[in-house]
Amino acid sequence: MTGHLVERVFQHREGLIEGFTKKYGIHRLVHAEAFDDVGQAIARENAMKKWRRAWKIELIERDNPDWDDLYLKLNH
């Protein structure tokens, strides 16, 4: 969850943040959701962390079937 998506994705792409994305070399943004309420965003993130991998893949493929890098479409 972040209030600054472009900046956060840039940090992950450049390997500036330790954790899952750096460890596994993940550099593409394939899914993102926007919320007006921070509490709702945090709740959604926490719920999704408990999902099975197959459910996450289904969500991505529903909205982004080609797994395009959405970072390239963000306003920089």
Rank of each mutant, 00 (worst) to 15 (best):
G3I: 03
H4I: 02
V6E: 13
E7Q: 14
E7G: 08
R8V: 02
R8M: 11
V9A: 09
F10P: 00
H12T: 00
H12I: 01
R13V: 01
R13H: 09
G15R: 04
L16E: 09
I17F: 08
F20M: 07
K22V: 01
K23E: 14
Y24R: 07
G25V: 02
H27V: 06
R28Q: 10
R28F: 03
R28T: 03
R28M: 04
L29D: 04
E33K: 15
E33Y: 07
F35I: 00
F35A: 05
F35Q: 04
F35Y: 15
D36V: 00
V38K: 08
G39D: 12
A43G: 08
A43F: 05
R44A: 15
A47G: 02
M48R: 15
M48P: 00
K49F: 07
K49V: 01
K50Q: 13
K50W: 01
W51G: 03
R53Q: 11
A54R: 09
W55I: 08
I57N: 10
L59R: 14
I60T: 05
I60S: 02
R62Y: 12
R62A: 14
D63V: 01
N64F: 06
P65D: 03
W67F: 14
D68V: 00
D69R: 02
Y71I: 01
Y71C: 01
Y71M: 04
Y71K: 02
Y71Q: 02
K73D: 11
K73C: 03
L74M: 12
N75L: 10
H76F: 13
